[in-house]
Nucleic acid binder design. Structure first.
Length: 519
RNA sequence: GGCGCCGUACCCAAGUGGCUAAGGGAGCAGUCUGCAAAACUGCGAUGCGGCGGUUCGAACCCGCCCGGCGCCUCCA
């Protein structure tokens, strides 16, 4: 029985979708005016995992994630770069999709853009005007907050409190300082669409209301985004949507916590952010393969593991040490997969079979129990580790092929929810150079934000280890070494091992005199 | 000023009223090994920021305090 923490109620609730076995969910995507940072990655990953788990649990999911492609920040960026808003939006939209692909975050079922739904937005604004929730000020349309008594329900704010703390420049013409723009008249050179109120463009919040209701219905199951969207964005969405339809809008509100650097929120305005592509650039250099896509996959799994070892609602402090630990933990899984794959024994005793069945069942239960409890990914990962320990404890030599395959399948099946264990065993790289990361991009920021220059100066001084891609060559060396060991020529054997080690290859001897190796 | 969150071992991190406080990383010791590596075993918080209180019983509930953070303004 799945329970989800609902921001609306402030507590965990049993999840019951409107229609049995079907979930309609919407997550706020990004405003495409710059490259996305790790915070965006976390949010995207959280909802990717939620979608995956809902499907894993047997729900048919329709997932919508929007792009805000018309906005003040885009306009500003466009004028800075001497380009059109559309060009800026297009560029960063494609960059986002590329970043998501590298991260292994699957596209949403529908990824609507605000600019493609202008008629829907206008229609919604018309309804709000007609129902007395919005008013016109020259070419602008404002939502009148006090016409919606439930305003503040999501963010748990009283309208009086909001006023008291208002530090915003207030447009004096507004009926109330809290009223927000549904439609803005456009100045020359700004993107503009014809409307009953003249040429203009939508305000920030209205597009999510228009697109979510159009694509998912007036009432749908789950709506999410980062914590910072609770107010004002989602509060305003609720006000607009409910006022227009008179119906419930989204039923479960899910918000993820921030990524932080040195205990501070990672954000554009603080300047303490890493873009997703910076992380990939930096980490991809660790891997020995020349195949860029394989490198991406290795980095992506380490990053996903790292992000998922913290519960989605908690803040998460980013560090290279954390990523490194994630990689080490994954090594343990892949090492087990490797051994299971390489084992050549075909027989097994039935009690081992029974035991394997039992521990796989325990994984399933532990995993689902954790995920059903508000998507507790750290606890679910712990369940995976417990299975790893159990299997490692069983005599490796006694597992039949069938049992080994069943085990790996169980890992991969559950790992799919998180996007883990998807890499071919032979492509996983175990021994990566450490200790050189501090040479390049800073691993932690000083505490004075003004000095930060995180996006520049990425210099990697230590070159990657030389490549030995010829597996036959490696195997020849390994064979030669085992021949030497047979002769008790340990000096020669150790020489060969050292030589291979210099290429980042580790030898592990088996009891029968043969050896396996890994990068 | 208003609203809210967090503080669990060397590091990361679950747990939020009741078995021995998950799991990972790092470390140390042992088994195995020609030596290693991997794997396994053991060690590691009589205690969960501090002080009080409620309770038969609290990391978990309440109060106060200390430390850190977020939202109220664009923000995942």
């Amino acid at each position: 029985m799945l329970k989800i923490y609902n921001t609306l109620s402030g507590q965990k609730e049993v999840f019951k979708p409107l229609k049995p076995k079907r979930v309609r969910m919407y997550a706020c995507g990004v405003t495409v005016y710059d490259y996305s940072h790790l915070g965006h990655a976390r949010s995207a990953l959280v909802f990717d995992v939620i979608r995956n788990y809902l499907q894993f649990s047997g729900y048919a999911v329709k997932y919508v994630r929007n792009f805000t492609d018309v906005d003040d920040k885009i306009i500003k960026r466009a004028s800075e770069e001497g380009k059109t808003s559309a060009e800026i939006a297009e560029k960063y939209l494609l960059a986002y999709q590329e970043d998501m692909k590298r991260l292994g975050v699957a596209p949403a079922d529908v990824e609507p853009k605000a600019t493609e739904h202008i008629p829907d937005i206008i229609r919604l604004i018309k309804t709000l005007i007609k129902k007395g929730h919005a008013y016109r000020l020259n070419g602008d349309i404002y939502y009148e907050v006090k016409t919606y008594p439930a305003y503040g329900r999501l963010s748990k704010r009283k309208t009086e409190d909001l006023l008291a703390g208002a530090r915003v420049e207030v447009d004096e013409r507004k009926r109330d300082p809290m009223d927000f723009a549904l439609w803005k008249s456009s100045k020359a050179g700004e993107p503009a669409w014809d409307s009953p109120w003249g040429r203009g463009r939508p305000g920030w919040h209205i597009e999510c209301s228009a697109m979510s209701m159009k694509l998912l219905g007036k009432t749908f199951d789950l709506h999410g985004g980062g914590m910072d969207l609770i107010f004002p964005h989602h509060e305003n969405e609720i006000a607009q949507s409910c006022a227009a339809t008179g119906k419930e809008f989204a039923r479960y509100w899910v918000h993820n916590g921030f990524v932080q650097i040195n205990q501070e929120k990672m954000s554009k305005s603080l300047g303490n952010f890493f873009t997703i592509r910076e992380i990939f650039e930096k980490w991809n250099r660790k891997w020995r393969t020349n195949d860029e896509r394989k490198r991406d996959r290795l980095t992506a799994e380490a990053l996903r593991y790292f992000l998922l070892t913290t519960h989605y609602r908690s803040p998460l402090d980013f560090s290279d040490v954390g990523l490194q630990e994630a990689k080490s933990a994954l090594d343990g899984f892949y090492d087990l997969f490797k051994r299971l794959r390489e084992s050549s024994v075909e027989t097994t005793t039935s009690d081992v079979d029974v035991r394997v069945k039992q521990v796989i069942e325990e994984l399933k239960n532990g995993f689902c129990q954790a995920m059903d409890d508000d998507f507790n990914t750290p606890a679910a990962i712990a369940a995976l580790h417990r299975l790893r320990g159990e299997i490692n404890r069983l005599p490796e030599s006694g597992l039949s092929r069938q049992v080994r395959e069943r085990t790996v399948k169980a890992f991969r099946k559950h790992g799919t929810v998180f996007g883990l264990f998807q890499i071919r065993v032979k492509d996983w790289e175990f021994n990566v150079p450490t200790g050189w990361m501090g040479q390049g991009m800073q691993t932690s920021f000083p505490s004075q934000p003004k000095e930060w220059r995180p996006t520049s100066g990425v210099t990697i001084t230590e070159p990657p280890l030389p490549l030995i891609d010829e597996e036959k060559e490696i195997q020849r060396k390994v064979d030669e070494r085992n021949e030497a060991r047979r002769r008790k020529d340990f000096k020669r054997a150790d020489e060969i091992r050292a030589e291979l080690a210099s290429f980042g290859i580790t030898i592990e001897d088996r009891p029968d005199g043969t050896s396996r190796w890994k990068r």
